[in-house]
């Protein structure tokens, strides 16, 4: 599909099929390649298999056929080298927000003061500085999902798999966090696969967009908007043109 097929992709999903027992395939022959440092958005309507594909890419599910290749080696088991954010926040409610963010660290080794500082900085970046000592019960849904995002980022993994991370946020917070995420990932050279059902968000964030329908990737686009994205672009003709094209494809896939 892509011309630079000769170079080794960072993440290579090859003809992957996944079926839950006794059902039609949920992921039905997906091929997708990501180069290092790229930001890809996976778009599609509810129930089309986005979360399942993301879990396959993480190694949480094993494909019935096909394979997932991460940096040249077949993915054997999930591990902390991949940052994963679940669709639901999935926090541990007996730990404070800070300790939740530090969980990936504390499962590897004893967190150092620098780790705590990094976690606090992340929380601060996500607008949660004053909630570090609060427990998940005391946080709103959007705040919980931001804690979960900080937890996915804290080990600075080279690959991030995010499942609708901003779905529970208002438009303004969401726009701020989108810019934050883009900047952080650009600075670290992180490769990101980002699931969303918001066309606007996909066009704003993505270098590429894959449109999923019925377990297949039915359409994909390369977005060539100028590199550091600016909120003002959202009103430009190029941006709206992309949105309209994606929207048309989604409507077409639905019928």
């Amino acid at each position: 599909m892509r011309t630079e097929g000769a170079t080794v992709a960072f993440l290579d999903i090859e003809k992957v099929v996944f079926t839950y027992p006794g059902r039609a395939p949920v992921v039905d022959g997906v091929d997708w390649r990501m180069q290092a440092g790229e930001f890809h958005c996976l778009l599609g309507r509810s129930g089309c298999g986005k979360t399942t594909l993301l879990k396959l890419a993480a190694g949480l599910l094993k494909p019935q056929s096909g394979r997932i290749v991460l940096r040249g080696g077949e993915l054997a088991a999930p591990g902390p080298q991949v940052g994963f954010m679940f669709q639901a926040p999935t926090l541990l409610d007996w730990l404070s927000a800070l300790d939740n963010v530090l969980l990936p660290v504390s499962l590897q080794r004893r967190p150092t003061p620098q780790d705590a500082q990094r976690a606090l900085r992340l929380l601060d970046q996500l607008g949660l500085a004053s909630h570090a000592q609060h427990h998940p019960r005391q946080l709103s849904g959007g705040q919980q999902s931001r804690v979960a995002l900080a937890r996915a980022l804290v080990l600075e993994p080279p690959l991030l798999l995010l499942d609708e991370p901003f779905a529970a946020l208002d438009a303004i917070t969401r726009a701020e966090l989108q810019d934050d995420l883009l900047r952080t990932c650009r600075e670290r050279g992180t490769t990101v696969l980002f699931v969303t059902h918001d066309i606007n968000e996909a066009v704003y964030l993505g270098d590429r967009i894959a449109l999923m329908h019925g377990g297949r990737i039915v359409e994909n686009w390369t977005i060539t908007l100028p590199a550091p994205r600016m909120q003002a672009m959202r009103h430009g003709p190029a941006f709206n043109d992309y949105c309209a094209r994606v929207r048309a494809a989604m409507d077409g896939a639905g019928t």
Partner: peptide
Amino acid sequence: AQRLQLFRMLGATRLQTLLRLKLP
């Protein structure tokens, strides 16, 4: 199941999963 997947994702050992997830 979701939290078990989380611990799997974070590379937790069986003992860690027992002591730090299942027991609490």
